[in-house]
Design a protein around this nucleic acid. Structure first.
Lengths: 139, 139
DNA sequence: TTGCAAATTTGTAAAAATTACAATTTATAT
DNA sequence: ATATAAATTGTAATTTTTACAAATTTGCAA
């Protein structure tokens, strides 16, 4: 687990015009420190230990706000759960259908957009791979 | 709306070793005739008119079975709803964040898989574009 | 045919996930 | 200090999904 300073977290929030409340800082920090694409549930359960009064509603609202502002990304690769990613640089994702883990995949190529119809505006492109991860294959 | 013969529907089901019950035929036919990537809700509501006793459970189970057998695809582009696609040939999808419609996009290029780690097996690759569609832009 | 066993579907109820919203708490600026 | 705005909480309502027993339908053998 990477250690992220409070300063980094505050800066990232303020860059997007979001006020750094205790809850927001905790949520963003969690996403930056845990690059495992956690679900709302995981985030809520983990942070409840540090912030016992934390409300599930706050987690929902905060993640939605972060997504809207482009601070984080919602990874909808798994139809069941939404996974959140604190890192928004261009990269793809891999879902293992056995263990349900989501992995980051370097995306060292350009995705052509030629096929998108005239008049459509693309704001985001995601590449999702599904399959079986190494661990699950060797078991 | 394209008209799909009963024969086509039955063949597709039997190819995958699925017995062609009334419900299964109706669901598959709906997906083949309506290329709008309907949600479970839409499928259930529409088909309930033809099959008044149709159960939501059956729709859930059937769609899951179809996906497992590779007869259809679940499009998880929209974190809120799962969209189902009766056409499984390689193509990408575009989600309009205004009207929430999902559009098919020709994918006339190969997606490199070089970046997937050694030892991982890829069974499916999806490209999802998000943005605004022509209709919503001109409004 | 008839009847049995397996497969499928139904309907209800429970569980889980999400949303709405009023009340409370916290932060900010005067 | 105090008023105002912003954010969070907690509960309840709503929606979505799952579990599962009962009922129905189907395929097949006698």
């Amino acid at each position: 687990m990477e250690v992220i300073t409070k300063e980094t977290v505050v800066n990232k929030l303020e860059e997007k015009g979001i006020r750094p409340s205790v809850q927001r800082m905790a949520i963003l920090r969690y996403l930056l420190e845990h690059r495992t694409h956690p679900s709302i549930d995981e985030i809520y359960n983990q942070l409840s230990e540090q912030i016992p009064t934390l409300s599930l509603t706050t987690v929902y609202n905060t993640l939605e706000q972060f997504c809207e502002k482009g601070l984080i990304k919602a990874i909808s690769i798994d139809g069941k759960v939404i996974h959140y990613d604190g890192y928004t640089h261009v990269h793809a994702h891999f879902l293992c259908t056995k263990c349900r883990k989501v992995f980051d995949i370097d995306q060292n190529f350009e995705i052509p957009q030629a096929a998108v119809p005239e008049g459509f505006t693309v704001s985001n492109t995601e590449v999702y791979y599904t399959g079986t991860c190494k661990d699950c294959l060797t078991k």
